Simulated assay, not measured.
Amino acid sequence: MLQRGVRAMRVLRASSVGLTRPAASRSLAPNAARFSSSRSRFPAPLVASPLLQRAGLFAAAAASTSAACAFCSSSNVAMSPVAEAAVAEKAAGQQPTVVLYQYEPCPYCCKVKAVLDYLNIPYEVVEVNPLTKKETQAFTSYRKVPVCRIDDEVVVDSSAIISRLRELVVAPTTASNEDEAALAEEEQWRQWVDQKLIILTPPNIYRSVPEALQAFDYCLTEGKFTPMERRLSKYAGAVVMYLIAKRSKKKYGIEDERQSLYSALDSWVAAVGDDRAFLGGAEPNMADLSVFGVLRAMHGLDTYEDMMRETAIEPWFSRMTAKVGSSSRTASN
C-alpha cells in the first residue's frame, strides 16, 4: 500500500495540478444510562503503534489499513496505565474535557462524534490540515485522525477513543442469555461496518473527480488555514483520494460501487427489521451509532442523496438523527 501511495504521489506530480459545526453544550446524563456496548478497545502509549514511524504526506496516507480514508485510522489497541489510573475518578460521572482533532467528513471521526453527541459529552473540534498535520505535530507523531485529547490524555484511533469514552459512562453490568445474544449481534454488525460498509465508502464518495472535489469542499471553510493551504488541501487531497478509491475498487472486486452500497444498506435495514426501532431495540447500540456515523459523513454529497433515494435506509436514519440529537460540539477551530 505504501508503494501505491508513492505511485499516487508521482502521478500527482506528473499531472502538475495547480494548487493554491454551531455549538450546543449539554449534560452527560440523559443518554448515558441508555448507552450499551460489548466492545472494549483501549488507548495504548503512542510509541506502541508501528504507524508512528511512517512519514511523508501521501505515502503515509496511502499506507493506511483503513479503506475508508487514507488519512484516517481504526485498529486494535490496549489500555494505557494513564487510562487505568483515571477510570476510578471518571466513574463518578465527572464530565471530561474533550478536544477532537479531525477532518470534518472523515467517517471514523464521524463515528466518534456520533458517540459524543449521543452521550451528550461536550467537545471542542480542531480541524487538521490533511497534508501537513501541523495541528497535532506538537504532541503526537501519529499521522492520522481522529486524535482526541481527553483531559490530559491523548488517545488515537477511533475505536480506542470510543472505548475510552465508554469508561466515562456508567453502563449496565448485568447480563442475561438474551443480553449475550444481543451483544453478539451487535459485535457482528460492528465488524460488518469496518469490513464491509467502510470499504464501500471511498469508491462511492470519490467515484469521480467532481465527486472527490465535492468531498473536499470542507477544506475551503473549516479550520484555521491560509487561503493557499485551503486550495492545496482541497485539490491535492481530492486527486489522491480519487486515485486511492480506484485502487480500492479494484482490490475488493467492486464492479458497481453504488449498487454494492445499496445492497449493503438493504442488508442493514433487514437486520434491524420492522419490529424494533434500532438494532439495539428501543435505543441505539454501538452498531447503530457506527453505521449512523459513517452515513452521516456522507451528508451533503451525491452519495448521500443517491442512497436515500434508492434504499430504505431513510426511516432508520431519521430515527437515529432524532435520537442522537443536536451536536454537543462547543467550539470549532
Results as ranks from 00 to 15, higher is better:
M241C: 04
A245Y: 00
Y235A: 14
M308E: 04
V324R: 11
G281A: 05
D274A: 15
L265I: 05
W268I: 08
D274E: 10
N285G: 10
I313S: 04
R319Y: 02
A297Q: 02
A238M: 02
E283H: 15
R309C: 08
R258L: 09
I254V: 14
L289W: 01
R247N: 12
D302L: 11
V272D: 03
A282Q: 15
S260R: 12
Y242Q: 11
M241N: 12
A287M: 03
R247S: 14
T321C: 04
G237C: 01
A271D: 05
S233F: 00
A277K: 11
M320H: 02
T303I: 00
H299W: 10
V269N: 01
Y242W: 08
W268L: 08
S248T: 15
R247E: 09
M286D: 14
L232K: 10
E283W: 09
R258E: 12
V272H: 03
V291E: 08
Y242L: 15
L279Q: 08
D288I: 03
G293M: 06
R247W: 04
Y242K: 15
A282W: 01
D275Q: 12
S248F: 15
V269A: 06
W316H: 08
M241H: 05
A236S: 08
W268K: 05
E305M: 00
G273E: 05
M286G: 09
L243Y: 13
K246F: 00
L301T: 15
K323D: 03
K251V: 10
V324K: 09
S260C: 14
M298Y: 04
G253N: 03
H299V: 12
G281T: 05
I313V: 04
S318G: 12
A236R: 09
L279D: 05
E314T: 11
F278I: 06
G281R: 00
E257I: 10
K323G: 04
S267Q: 13
G237I: 00
F292Q: 11
Y304C: 14
W268A: 07
I254D: 09
S260N: 14
Q259A: 13
A245D: 02
P315W: 07
G237R: 03
A238S: 04
T311W: 02
K249T: 06
M307S: 09
L261I: 08
S290F: 07
K251Q: 15
T321G: 07
A277V: 13
P315F: 00
D275A: 10
K234Q: 15
F317E: 07
K249F: 00
K234Y: 05
A238K: 03
L243E: 13
E310Y: 14
D274C: 06
R296I: 00
Y262R: 11
L289E: 03
Y235K: 12
M307T: 13
W268C: 03
V291Q: 11
D306E: 11
V240H: 09
S248N: 15
R276T: 07
A287K: 04
L265Q: 00
D256A: 13
N285V: 10
H299N: 13
A270R: 10
V272K: 01
M320W: 01
R296Q: 11
A277H: 02
E283F: 08
E283L: 12
L265C: 05
L301C: 07
M320C: 03
L265R: 04
D275K: 13
G281H: 03
S233G: 01
D275S: 12
L301A: 13
F317C: 12
N285L: 00
E257V: 11
K250E: 14
E257H: 14
W268Q: 02
A270W: 03
K246N: 11
G300C: 06
G280K: 09
A322W: 11
V291P: 01
G253Y: 01
